[in-house]
Nucleic acid binder design. Structure first.
Lengths: 151, 151
DNA sequence: AGACATCGTTAGCATAGCTAACGATCCTGC
DNA sequence: GCAGGATCGTTAGCTATGCTAACGATGTCT
């Protein structure tokens, strides 16, 4: 009856991960408020800052969102002076999105604030728990990737 | 320099957990689409189904949302015939919310679907990885709880 | 050259989040 | 017992995010 047990475990795990994801985001959102950016904008900005200039379509796929949605998110970031739209020389259909210096600064400031919030919680973990949680985060990323590939 | 290293670890972990939470919810949302319910509605319904009759204010606090927002979520669920509003005898200001039989059924069906989606991914994990992920999920819950208590 | 494909945008819709303001009800102090 | 303040849920009105459909501009292929 091993597969039955695994199925029950999967159910429980799904519920826990789902709930944890919801509540984690709600808490981080309060911190992210200090940047003046919503979660989707902050996430997109992060991709642009670390992923170099990127086309709008690539950004939409990276964020698992449709192009019209990304158009508006980028427009919002652009109005805030955090990213710039640039045309592509070779393929004039493309819009390349690049972070401005201000965009980089804002993202870094947000990172510090999140760290400060999490620091208090993480400090209480012993080394073993910290390592376990890192392992769990990696497994979660892999799980999400495998789900994405199957879709 | 241990605290410096821990701080870096906390930063990386915060980024990873933030990103993982966003992407996990995006994937689960596609599955939840089969219920015809959005994530907030599904989450609220879950509280009502398992938490018995509950006032609107309690529900709003449980979901970390303001009362006006919960009013509309409940209205949506009510129009779908998934919950009922009932007045309270003792305190006529209160609105008690109770799940209908249909609401219970829909929630259960959604649970099955989520499990089916995750099953494929979880099946590929060996027992060690599964145990590690469960441990990680538990640590994450504890982390969130400790953050909430400090706020 | 013409047909088709791809990219980003616009338009229009639904949902979810917020604050402010309000009516109804409850509780308290006098 | 009643006048004033507190609490509960709702309504109104704003912003942001998500979607599909449709379109113009550009690229590609035959």
């Amino acid at each position: 009856m091993k597969s039955r047990k695994r199925e029950r475990d999967a159910l429980a795990l799904a519920e826990q991960l789902h709930s944890a994801a919801i509540h984690l985001l709600r808490h981080l959102r309060t911190v992210d408020d200090a940047t003046g950016l919503s979660a989707p904008r902050l996430s997109a900005l992060s991709v642009v800052v670390f992923g170099g200039p990127v086309t709008l379509g690539e950004l939409a796929r990276a964020e698992q969102v449709r192009p019209p949605t990304m158009t508006r998110i980028v427009t919002g970031l652009e109005k805030g002076g955090l990213v710039r739209r640039e045309g592509d020389e070779r393929d004039k259909r493309l819009t390349r999105i690049r972070a401005t210096t201000k965009g980089q600064k804002v993202l870094m400031a947000g990172r510090s604030r999140r760290v400060e919030l999490l620091a208090g919680a993480v400090e209480k973990l012993d080394s073993t728990a910290l390592a376990d949680l890192e392992r769990g985060a990696q497994l979660l990323r892999e799980l999400i990737d495998s789900m994405r590939r199957e879709k």
